[in-house]
């Protein structure tokens, strides 16, 4: 391994914390790979060796896992992954155009990184935000209801060093390495930022409130106060 001694010391300390979360050390492999991405910006040969060493696996066993999951990158990733959802719904509702625009604007193709190391463009599969289509995930934060122009605007802002705010996420977008550390299970203190939900998430709730629709109350005597959650009484 070519990690500097202080990097290795820090990695080892973090790895111990990760391993301690699980009854069996091997369960720590995915978070450890995320952790290594937070150091190297991708799954480097060092990362493979580090995880193999820490978990007493062979390098083949580690790379078997590292190359299975699409979030683990085999080439140094840009500071920002621009993940354009191109699965049928987002893609046909405009994701295709967004991807094409970004590709043209950045002059990179799928899974390629700009020469300045800022952006990695990626076609991503459904990211569970279909009611916000078309969706752009930058470093796995939600940028909802995008257009080609808005996507390019985000890229321009990032390039200009401006702070960019995800639609449903922290106040300020983190770098790929920063969010990789979160994915390794280390809190970054931004959980309380951003909204609880976007408008589509609340569509039914707000309609029900307007219409006065609710679930039935608890069965039986209303004095049964053991029930905490007043059914059908959305706040």
């Amino acid at each position: 391994m070519t990690y500097a001694p202080e990097t290795l010391t820090a990695l080892r300390a973090d790895a111990d914390q990760v391993v301690a979360r699980y009854p069996s050390p091997r369960s720590a492999l995915l978070p450890l790979l995320h952790l290594c991405q937070s150091v190297d910006g991708y799954i480097s040969p060092d990362a493979i060796a580090f995880c193999a060493d820490r978990l007493e696996l062979t390098a083949a066993e580690v790379s078997a896992v590292a190359t299975f999951y699409s979030q683990f990158k085999r080439q140094p990733n840009g500071q920002y992954t621009l993940g354009v959802c191109i699965t049928s719904l987002c893609g046909l509702l405009g994701g295709d155009a967004i991807f094409a625009k970004l590709s043209e604007y950045l002059a990179v193709g799928n899974d390629q990184t700009t020469a300045d190391g800022m952006f990695t463009l990626e076609r991503v599969e459904c990211n569970a935000a279909c009611d916000y289509a078309p969706v752009l995930m930058i470093n796995w934060e939600f940028f909802d209801n995008q257009t080609p122009a808005s996507a390019v605007g985000l890229v321009e802002d990032l390039r200009a060093g401006k702070s960019v705010r995800p639609t449903r996420g922290p106040d300020k977008l983190g770098t790929f390495k920063e969010i990789s550390r979160v994915l390794a299970g280390f809190e970054d203190g931004h959980a309380n930022e951003g909204p609880a939900a976007g408008a589509p998430s609340l569509a039914g709730l707000e309609l029900a409130a307007r219409e006065g629709w609710s679930a039935p109350g608890p069965i039986g005597d209303g004095s049964d106060s053991s029930h905490p959650q007043e059914a059908g009484d959305p706040k």
């Binding site: 070519t2 190297d40 480097s44 080439q75």
Partner: peptide, 8 residues
């Protein structure tokens, strides 16, 4: 596997 080598 197409894994980039470590810089040094």
């Amino acid at each position: 596997l197409g894994v980039a080598a470590v810089a040094d």
